[in-house]
Nucleic acid binder design. Structure first.
Lengths: 255, 255
DNA sequence: CCGCTTGTTTCGTTAAATGAAACGCATAAG
DNA sequence: CTTATGCGTTTCATTTAACGAAACAAGCGG
């Protein structure tokens, strides 16, 4: 045991994360992924299964369990970003009458952790839990404010072309990230999906790091330039309000 | 080690659940609650803290962490009840134009695990993660289909009177549970909050157990008897559709 | 029918995890 | 101001709980 870490618990968490990342696989493969022996993996998985942290999705594959769901829901009520964001997202949604999302960095992805949708018939559909690459579309806003070292790891040399408007090279993306940092928001016109426009604004924490981004996503055909500007303004203001609620205060501190 | 349970992991889960149930308390109190020594609790908590399963909410208190949030969100995308319920709840919400919820039993409470809200100005506000007692209002629907042994543990002899319409004794509640089982749904008129009407219908799993309930909640003043009947009909049908999606099939099996 | 997977079980070994007690540091009480 | 009591943290010697390797059972495909 090094430095107060209980290794079996640590390894159990490794396995849990592995199950989350790729469900419906068995003991052997999970053991391989996490670098533990098969018998150890079996015992740790068995322990978590008894407690419903994970469950069997078939006779010999695992997935996250019901206890995990309940704990996660409880976590969302205990987590400031979510608790404070919810009313802000709902108000923003109502004002722009389009779908809005809250995203954070998880691994190499932008993970949607909250959303609000207007009830108009034609709207972009959002899903809590859905992941998007950080290097294309409005998720770039989240990426732009991460440490350069992380950015370098994220952005591929040859980003896959999702649409005709997807940035075509690493250099272009890095260029855009600079622009995003300068102007304080990000706009995407069909970079991820055709006929879809989105914009995003950063949410700052106490230490001036960006912990999340607020996104507005809309069908391209009904967003003219002037409307887009309007949306950007209120989205940015919503993000600022959330930042302040998290304890951040505007200042021009040189880092 | 008994029966393939890794005790340190098991105890870590105990602590995790304790943190979830009552956040913002310290090592000593958590150790007491879970029946482990202070040093053990400290090490297990420290291990989970490093992995962001939990985090400090102050210098010496704990709460659920960001990894927990992400795992929970991932779990919700992997869990059938949620995945299948979401579109059904949204359609139901649109059709009744009122707030709808999905609830499950957790501990002694009815826990809201999903919701959909209409965008009309006056509506009942719902919150994923909010808990309600099982013995009053529409949550009784969830209770009615649990094992009798569990019901007996849940229902207090003298239930606290939340409003003038809260059932006043254990006997009355047990009577109502029988009625709910018979008619297959539950109606509450101001049992939990004045001026609030709700109804609920059970969602069945393969084994005919009730895994969740679908609730419709509305301001009392705009729900006449005939509207209520209409709401009950489509709520019940939504619950049935969800049951079938989960693999349940209607049958008159004597237990 | 055999070989190659799985997941599960056994068992002896050992180091990882533990409990008790000490420590330092607060705040509260005397 | 001093003492007492509570907290979180650290230490250390002890031992038991967790481990790895190997055997086992069961399923599948060739």
């Amino acid at each position: 045991m090094q430095d107060y870490i209980v290794e079996s618990v640590d390894k159990a968490i490794d396995l849990l994360m592995a199950v989350a990342r790729k469900p419906n696989i068995g003991v052997t493969e999970l053991a391989k992924k996490t670098g533990v022996t098969k018998s150890r993996a079996f015992r740790l998985l068995h322990t978590m299964e008894q407690r419903k942290i994970i469950k069997r999705t078939s006779e010999s594959t695992y997935g996250l369990g019901e206890a995990m769901l309940v704990l996660g829901i409880t976590a969302s009520t205990q987590t400031d970003v979510i608790r404070l964001a919810t009313p802000i997202l709902e108000e923003l949604c109502q004002r722009v009458n389009e779908t809005v999302q809250l995203r954070i960095v998880d691994g190499l992805d932008a993970l949607c952790i909250a959303k609000a949708e207007p009830s108009r018939d034609l709207r972009v559909h959002a899903n809590v839990g859905r992941r998007r690459p950080l290097y294309a579309g409005s998720p770039k806003c989240l990426l732009a404010f991460q440490p350069q070292e992380f950015i370098d790891r994220c952005v591929p040399l040859k980003p896959p072309a999702l649409t005709a408007h997807t940035p075509k090279s690493r250099a272009v993306i890095l260029e855009e990230l600079i622009k995003i940092r300068r102007q304080g928001y990000c706009v995407s016109r069909g970079e991820v999906s055709d006929h879809q426009v989105s914009c995003a604004a950063p949410v700052f924490a106490l230490d001036n790091s960006v912990v999340a981004t607020i996104h507005v996503v809309a069908p391209a055909f009904r967003i003219r330039e002037s409307e887009l500007e309007h949306i950007i303004r209120i989205a940015t203001s919503a993000a600022q309000r959330l930042s302040r609620a998290l304890g951040w205060s505007e200042e021009e501190t040189a880092v």
